[in-house]
Simulated scan of single mutants.
Amino acid sequence: MTIARLADLADPLTTPRLVVKVGSALLVGKDGKPRREWLTSLCGEIAEARKRGQQVVVVSSGAIALGAAKLGLAKGGRGSLADAQAAAAVGQIALAGLWSELLEQQGLTAAQLLVTLEDLDDRRRYLNASATIGRLLKSGAVPVINENDSVATEEIRFGDNDRLAARAAQAARADAIALLSDVDGLYDRDPADPEARMLPRVEGVTAEIHEMASGSSSSGLGSGGMTSKLQAAEIAERAGITLAIINGTHERPIARALEHDTGTLFLPRRNDGALKSWLGGRQRMAGVIVVDAGCAKALAKGGSLLATGITAIEGEFRRGDPVGIRDASGRPLAQGLVEYDSAEVTRIQGHRSEELEPLLGYAPRSAVVHRDQLVLL
C-alpha cells in the first residue's frame, strides 16, 4: 500500500515507520525555556502511534536554544560557531532529559543519537547508524536524533534538521516524514499574501516549486526555512519516502493536521535502491565532473559516465570518492562514485575507450563512473 493522503500517516499499513521532525521554535519558547505542555501533547501522539502499531523516530532541534538561555548567550547562541558549540554542549543534556522524561510518562523509552554530516555521508558509519536505529526500534525504544552541534563545524554540518530528518529517514528505512513547521504547508507565494494558495500535494520538487520557497526562518531560533524543507523533500522522494509539511504550532499537531487534512504532502517520484538513495542524499562531493550534451543525454537514459563525454573537472578526488556530475551550464545531473583519481580523469577526459590504455599505462576500467554507482538528480 502507498501513501496517498495525509491521513495515511496514521495508518500502520501504509506508514509502519514514521519520522517526526521538531524544530527549535516549536520546542523552545522565546524565553529560552522548553514548551513542556506542547511537547507533552506530542509525546502523547507518539504513544498513540505506537499503540496503533507504528514505529516512530524523532529528529529534534532545540539544544542550542536551550543551552544559549542557560549560558546567557546572545542571538540564541548563534552569534558565532564557538557560541553554538558551547550552547549545544549544555543544551543537549537538557534536551535529552526532556524527551526522556516526557516519553517515559507515556510508558516509552527514549534513546539519544547525536550525528554529524560525516556520520551519514560516510558509507560505513551510515550503515552503523542504520543498524543502531533498527535495533532500537525493534527493542521498543524511540530514537531521538539531533545533529552533534558541539563538535560539528561549518564544513561538516547539515546546518538544519530538515535535511537531517530526510537522511535519518533513509537510515531508518522509514516510510514517511512529518516536518512540523510554523506554517500549514507550502504556499505558491509568501503566506502573508492574501492571495497565497497552499499546495496540498506535490509530485516532484521542480525549479518552479523551489521558486515558491523562502529561505528564511520566521522564528529566529531555527536555521532552516522552506528552502531546506524542499531540499529534504528531494532527498526523501528519491528514496521512495513521503514527506509532509504540517503546522506544528498547535497542541496535538499531527492529529489536528490529519483531521483537517491541512498540510502539504510530497509524494516520492521513485524508489532508488539503498546505495543509490544514500548517494543521492549526500551533500558533500569531493569534486565535480563536467560533461558535454551527448554525455548528459546518455546519463539520462541510464548510461555510465565515459571519459569521452568529459569536458572538465573541478577539485581533487581519489578513486571511490563521491563526485558531482554537471552539464556545461552548471546544472547538476547526477552524483556517483568515481573509478579514477582526478589526475587520471584529467589525462583521459575527451578520449574514446580504445585510447585509454596508453594514456593510463594499464587496462582501463569500464567507466569513469559506472551506472551502478551513479544516481540521477
Rank of each mutant, 00 (worst) to 15 (best):
E101A: 12
S139C: 04
A307T: 08
R365F: 12
E251H: 13
I325T: 08
D327V: 08
L18D: 02
G225S: 10
D182Y: 01
I245H: 03
S329W: 12
Y187H: 08
N247Y: 04
A236K: 01
G62E: 08
A213V: 05
K75C: 05
D119S: 09
G309H: 06
A233T: 06
P16L: 07
G330N: 10
E155Y: 13
Q54H: 04
G263I: 06
L374P: 02
G62W: 09
T346G: 15
Q105N: 13
A174T: 02
A74S: 14
G294E: 08
G315A: 10
G220I: 06
L374N: 08
L186W: 01
G67E: 01
A74F: 05
G67Q: 04
D182F: 08
Q55A: 10
D122S: 14
A74Y: 06
G350P: 07
P12D: 04
V142S: 03
D372T: 13
D121T: 11
A244E: 01
S41W: 01
S214I: 08
T15K: 00
L265R: 01
E154I: 15
I313F: 08
V56C: 07
L117Q: 12
L108N: 03
I310P: 00
L258I: 13
L186T: 02
S353T: 14
N271E: 15
A168W: 03
L98A: 02
W278K: 05
A196V: 11
G224S: 09
A25S: 15
V338F: 02
A293K: 15
D160N: 10
E203A: 13
L164C: 06
S139H: 12
I246D: 02
S216E: 12
E355K: 07
D321C: 06
S80G: 04
G330A: 10
A49F: 11
A176Q: 03
G303W: 07
K138H: 12
Q231N: 13
A69T: 10
R123W: 12
R163V: 14
N247F: 03
D193S: 10
S219E: 07
G263S: 10
K276H: 09
G315Y: 05
V22T: 09
E45W: 00
A111M: 07
A84W: 06
Y362E: 09
T116F: 03
T153Q: 07
R17C: 02
L279I: 14
R238L: 11
L117C: 13
